[in-house]
Amino acid sequence: MREMMMRHFTLLTVALVLTVLLSPTSFAESPPMKLGVPKIERQKERFVITIPVLTPEKSDPGKPRVVDREPTSETKPGTKKPSSGSLTMQASREKVSGMTMLVLAYLFIWAAVFGYMLFLRRVFRRQERDLAELNARLRALKAEKS
């Protein structure tokens, strides 16, 4: 029983590690943001994130980008203003593949947890059966003696 537990545990870990190795390869399809190491400071209610930007997208390198965490119109899905037609296409494709991968990763992780749950329940049921059998044999032995 204990060995099985250990084995299952190892399998789970391996599965999770595999998820790490596999899923981001599809994230990598979309150009990573390459934020480098962002510095996040809190200024009153706003986060000031200083990002050494390496991607050629819009912002000036090194310039602090002020991000308001209140959802502005920009944060709502679908309302993001495209700067050019080709970028929209690319962006939506990224979004789809990224989203699919994320959903898959999410489901995979939950599947692992559910799997663990099912496994535990199976072990418990088997124990229950064994216990019933042992008790039956014990009763039979007792009856024999008396």
Partner: peptide
């Protein structure tokens, strides 16, 4: 301990996924 470790694995898996995108490194 066993459960904590299972969740730790999840944390250690999902963290790098996010980190790759946000920081550029796993």
């Amino acid at each position: 301990a066993e459960l904590g470790l299972i969740y730790a694995s999840i944390v250690l898996v999902t963290g790098p996924l996010w980190g790759r995108k946000a920081w550029g490194t796993y």
